[in-house]
């Protein structure tokens, strides 16, 4: 079994963030970076598949040299090898360009399972996994919350409002993973120390003419809305109504 997992280096803002003065990017001064959360679950899923079925796993990112940090974190957790598609201007790559570079790189490598996050935490385009599947002419199930491999096939489950959609897919196939599919492990200190010795395959990629061009970023309006719904049991119907309104129930 050969498993690929694609990740993205995103700012670890801890909730709040600022934009740069030109409004073109998130100000990452004094901000750390992390693997995008859905992709962190994809990494965990890749490790679990290999632990159960044997084989090898590869983590890939399109990003700057500094993204080695995220690749090594994935290796520290148990991924076998890593590929960096080096693009210092990765923040300005659109999903089509990213998917094209990934598809071109992985096509000759013969992966059985290609895992992506459902969407990245920074741009939330929901596109790269789907586009890679299209470019490689592979089946794709998006937003999965369960994955089982049996007899060369995959059973992938998507959660719906009323239950589960279950897909049986022949391999090779692409899956985009949602948080909740698993609880990602922490890398061990021993894993971190071993990961630094693993060579990372690097390939420079050049951004093609983009189909999507970023003009500017705008921060959502801040401010908290306070509304007192009542007191004691009298407030219960209004609370239920409010929870329905925001889609919590």
């Amino acid at each position: 079994m050969k498993v690929l997992v694609c990740i993205k280096r995103v700012p670890d803002t801890g909730g709040g963030f600022k934009l740069t003065s030109d409004n073109m990017r998130v100000d990452t001064t004094n901000v750390g970076f992390a693997i995008s959360p859905h992709e962190e679950c994809a990494v965990e899923e890749a490790i679990r598949i290999i632990e159960k079925h044997g084989g090898s796993s590869t983590v890939l990112t399109l990003g700057p040299q500094a993204a080695q940090e995220q690749l090594r974190e994935a290796i520290a957790k148990g991924i076998t090898s890593a590929i960096l598609l080096e693009a210092e201007d990765y923040e300005f790559w659109d999903p089509a360009a990213t998917a094209h570079a990934i598809a071109e790189t992985v096509k000759p490598l013969g992966f059985d399972i290609l895992l992506f996050g459902n969407e990245s935490a920074d741009t939330c385009n929901y596109q790269v996994g789907l586009r890679v599947a299209h470019l490689l002419d592979l089946p794709c199930v998006t937003g999965i919350k369960a994955l089982e491999i049996q007899d060369g096939k995959a059973l992938a489950k998507r959660e719906t409002k009323d239950g589960w959609e279950v897909y049986e897919v022949a391999l090779p196939a692409v899956f985009t993973v949602k948080e909740g599919i698993n609880t990602p492990r922490h890398p061990s200190l021993r894993g971190i120390m071993s990961a630094k010795k693993v060579p990372i395959e690097q390939k420079k990629v050049t951004k093609p003419a983009p189909q999507l061009v970023r003009k500017a970023l705008k921060k959502p309006q801040e401010g908290r809305h306070l509304e007192i719904l009542g007191q004691g049991v009298d407030a219960v119907p209004k609370i239920i109504e409010k929870l329905r309104e925001v889609g919590a129930i």
């Binding site: 803002t13 801890g14 004094n30 901000v31 750390g32 080695q68 940090e69 520290a76 200190l189 120390m193």
Partner: peptide
């Protein structure tokens, strides 16, 4: 909210990749 630390003097720039990853872990 996840803790993001305090780094007014960009001390992270003086840390190695492993040191940061261990701290973050």
């Amino acid at each position: 909210t996840n803790f993001v630390g305090v780094d007014h003097f960009n001390i992270d720039e003086l840390l190695t990749e492993e040191q940061k990853l261990i701290r973050n872990t």
